[in-house]
Structure formats: C-alpha cells, structure tokens
Design a protein around this nucleic acid. Sequence first.
DNA 1: TATTGTTATACTCTATAACTATA
DNA 2: TATAGTTATAGAGTATAACAATA
Lengths: 164, 164
Amino acid sequence: MTASKHKKPALAEGALQSLIGYRIAKARIATQALFARHIGSPFSLRPVEYSLLMLLHANEALTPKQLSRALALPAPNLTILMDRMQGRGLIERVRNQADRRSQQALLTTDGATLARQLAELTPGVEKDLGEHLSPGELAMLAELLDKVSNSARARHEADGNPDE
Amino acid sequence: MTASKHKKPALAEGALQSLIGYRIAKARIATQALFARHIGSPFSLRPVEYSLLMLLHANEALTPKQLSRALALPAPNLTILMDRMQGRGLIERVRNQADRRSQQALLTTDGATLARQLAELTPGVEKDLGEHLSPGELAMLAELLDKVSNSARARHEADGNPDE
DNA sequence: TATTGTTATACTCTATAACTATA
DNA sequence: TATAGTTATAGAGTATAACAATA
C-alpha cells in the first residue's frame, strides 16, 4: 500500500480512496518524514531505535523478551539491534542472577541523557502538524487510530490467538 | 508480533504515546492484517499489486513512469512488479507508436475482470472496522488522515521540492 | 525437556548505477 | 545529449532454523 506524495498528474485513485488502509499508508509516509526531520536525522536513530530508548526510558529495565514483543521484532533481530545500541554506549545488558538465562536491558548514563532529551523533544514533532490540525483534531485522530488498532486485536484474539 | 503464553505485560509507552506517528504505525499493522484477510490472501496479491490493479482500473491506461510515481516505486522495481503481473496474465504492455521509447500498461481481459471484482470487494474490507467505528467516525478518520498527508506535502514543497 | 538469547542464513524490499533503444 | 525502460546488484528489513547456556 504505497502512495506518492507528488501531485502533478492527479491520477484517479478509484477504489483506493475508499480504503482506510490506503490513507493510513499515505499518512505514515508523512509522519515518517516528520520523524526523520525532528529525530531520525539529527540523532541518527531509526524509528525502532527511538522506540527502544523510549520504552527503556518509561520502564527502567526490560528483558529482551519483553522488548521483542513490544517492538514486534523477532528475537534474532532484536539481538542485532541491541548489539548496535550497546556498541553506541546507549544501553547495557545485565544477567539476571536468579535465572542466569535471562537478561535485563537498561539505559547507560549516556543513554538515559539522550532518552530524556528525546522525550522532551517528542511533543515538538507534532508541532509541524499543528498548522493543519488543531489540538482537538489531533486528539480525535489519536482516539480513532486506537480504535482501528484495537478492532484488529479483537478480531485477532477472536480467531484464537489470545494474548499477544 | 510474536506469540506468547504469558499475560500481557502492559509496558509503559511513555513519550511514544504522544507521537501520532507511533499510533499511525500501529494502526497500519491492523489495516495490513485486514487487507491480507480480505484481499491479499484470497487473491494472492500484495498491497502494491492491488494498488496497481486499482489504478489501471480507474485510469484505463498508464505509462510505467506514471505508475512509478503513483506507487512511489523506483523504476527498476516497477519493472519487476510489472513482469510478475504480466506473467500472471493480468496486465499487458503496449509500445507507443508515436514515441517508441514509452509504453502503456493496461489490464488484460482477465486483469479487468479481477480488478472489477476487487473494486466491488473493497468497501467490505472496512466492514470489519464497522463494529468499532461508525460510518461517521470512518469519514472523520479519512479526513484527518488526509490532513496529515497534505501537511507533509505542504512542508515538502515549502522546502523547495515543488511537484516533480 | 523447556526456555533465553545467540548465530547463521535466507528471502523480500528498496535503492542505485549502468546499460539499451529510441528520440 | 536526453529520456523510457531494463538489467544487475547492493543494502536494509524481516523471518526461520539450529545452537549454547541455563533451568
């Protein structure tokens, strides 16, 4: 579900226009650009990396297992991601002494500083949208998007996939 | 999105919650699943392939150049995609006699039949959302998402990238 | 035997450079 | 020389299988 942000030819979009998923895909391109401008480029962070930092910032410490689920990332890919973050000195891994198989991921001092900085910066990302969307509209949009996400989860679970 | 048998941990999402882009990304996962269920799996079509069919259905004939822009697909990747669609007998390529460098992509009889079928099926995709979102909410959501997309376009052009 | 995390690997997507054939 | 489309290829993203350490 890709979409162009260009305008020139104005092709008919036909049935696509009635697909909310098509609009979501197009809006995602827009917000990705917004993220890149405010956070991704200046801090050399991809969205997952930013999300990982924010999750650790909000939760103190998490196991790779928890992160894997929260970020919707298969375990092997999370390992690679954590290796990179650790290489940049932003996170560290501590073995759990009670059960030495498992670990806790947590922010280093540098990582915590960066995470705090990013968290403060985050509301500003949406300032760019403020010219076109009022605070009320933004709140409404957030609520509707949550309904979309939850409706899919409800169906997912109804199909026999409890939990997530 | 890995399955687990443990109870949902309900991690704090912190700053992520205030990022509309984060919600859009999550909603996109939901609508992708919806698309897969209604269209992708039953017809063995990926979202781009479906979009290409819908664009040709709505526009009669398009040049690869136009499709490349509309689908936000680099030219080489569009070539591969069109090869696949042509291999399945859904589209054909006709050389422009006036300028033999360029082509027109159009639906075959089979492709047109499928496209018509898909176009009729499309509104039903959102029926699954209907349990959670009223028609009015869906319309509102569509409008707000368009504003998000357009706000990014406005900024993009303001930065000195007029059209294409 | 089951679980946590890792290694190795493969498959798809996406992006870029170089080529062809026309103009 | 410039343009439309193709070929070849490289790089990221994503997924699965097999393994090591621990329980």
